[in-house]
């Protein structure tokens, strides 16, 4: 299967303006089959707008998009047959129970025996752990239970693509953990496209990430690539002794870009930025210990996490910081 065949979502300069305010500008997304695609951005970045455009709930002002090769404007019903969607703040008919909600949802997708539909509903309830609450009215559900029901109704049709808008935003840590676990479980059956501003969740489950800010796509890459590409390697050291002399020696090395020092408790901490990770890995520790003036207490390569990348790319991204 070539790359274009394995693309589930593809947008071309997709744009949306609301009464003159540009909410989304020239979005070019490419989502591969069977990926867990994290769609990141601060609040108001245009994530929900994008999702609504993909689902045909809103119309683009420019550009186009395809899902499974179908046009998002002209062939929306065909797309929605193969999609499961969980809204940011999911709403259902409050007078229905969870089972009735799933039955109602299932009838949009399936015909067949009543027993077959009930069996599918039961499977879905089991998947999200709502079997014991299946016959309670939704109005009595907690936020976490609503979210699990949301995943259940999005999953009831065996979707080829799950679109989840902030699936864990309103949940407590246990609820978030449960939702992420369900997403990981679904990965082998489906492609998951989900928006979030919770960066730790993205780093935990996603394999590809797109970052949106002020309606523009800033970056789109496999998560490992993103983590490794956006900054020069940094090594951290904890030192005791005559550190200034050692610092001058290290700073003069051609593959060292910068040495930042700061006192931490009863020792000195260094952050050494290097231009060549291979040489630094082999040489840096030896070079520091060369003069015998310092004792090395800690040494390691600083792990750049998604939050650093995100904050760098969104120029602070105060809204998205969590």
């Amino acid at each position: 299967m070539n790359t274009s065949n394995s693309l589930v979502i593809e947008t071309n300069n997709l744009s949306k303006a609301f009464r003159g305010v540009q909410a989304l500008t020239g979005l070019n997304l490419m989502v591969q089959q069977h990926s867990i695609f994290g769609f990141l951005g601060p609040n108001g970045a245009g994530k929900t707008t994008t999702i609504k455009l993909l689902l045909g709930l809103s119309r683009p002002t420019a550009g186009s998009g395809q899902i499974f090769g179908y046009d998002i404007q002209r062939e929306s019903t065909s797309i929605r047959r193969r999609i499961g969607y969980l809204a940011q703040d999911p709403r259902y008919y409050e007078h229905m129970t969870a089972r009735e909600t799933l039955r109602f949802t299932a009838h949009f997708f399936f015909t067949g025996s009543r027993a077959g539909i009930e069996e599918r509903i039961q499977e879905t309830l089991r998947l999200v752990g709502l079997e014991d609450k299946a016959d309670r009215p939704i109005k009595s559900f907690s936020g976490g239970e609503r979210q699990r029901l949301g995943i259940a109704q999005a999953q009831v049709n065996y979707p080829d693509l799950l679109i989840l808008d902030e699936p864990a935003a309103s949940l407590d840590p246990q609820g978030r953990h449960d939702v992420l676990e369900v997403m990981e479980r679904l990965r082998k059956h489906t492609t998951v496209f989900y928006s979030t501003h919770i960066l730790s969740d993205v780093q935990r489950v996603s394999d590809t990430v797109a970052i949106l800010d002020h309606g523009k796509l800033i970056s789109q890459a496999p998560i490992e690539e993103l983590l490794n590409s956006n900054s020069k390697p940094i090594y951290t050291l904890g030192l005791k002794g005559e550190t200034e002399k050692a610092r001058q020696r290290i700073a003069s090395l051609p593959w060292v870009v910068a040495v930042q020092t700061k006192p931490v408790n009863n020792h000195i901490s260094w952050e050494v930025t290097v231009s060549d990770d291979g040489i630094a890995e082999a040489q840096l520790l030896k070079q520091v210990q060369l003069g015998d003036e310092v004792t090395v207490l800690e040494f390691g390569r600083m792990k750049v996490d998604l939050e650093d990348i995100f904050l760098t790319l969104t120029e602070g991204g105060q809204n998205g910081k969590h």
């Binding site: 689902l55 709930l57 019903t77 969607y85 008919y93």
Partner: peptide, 12 residues
């Protein structure tokens, strides 16, 4: 209420 968006995200 948002239920219209929920329903119209299905093949309806």
């Amino acid at each position: 209420a948002g239920t219209a968006a929920w329903i119209l995200s299905k093949p309806v």
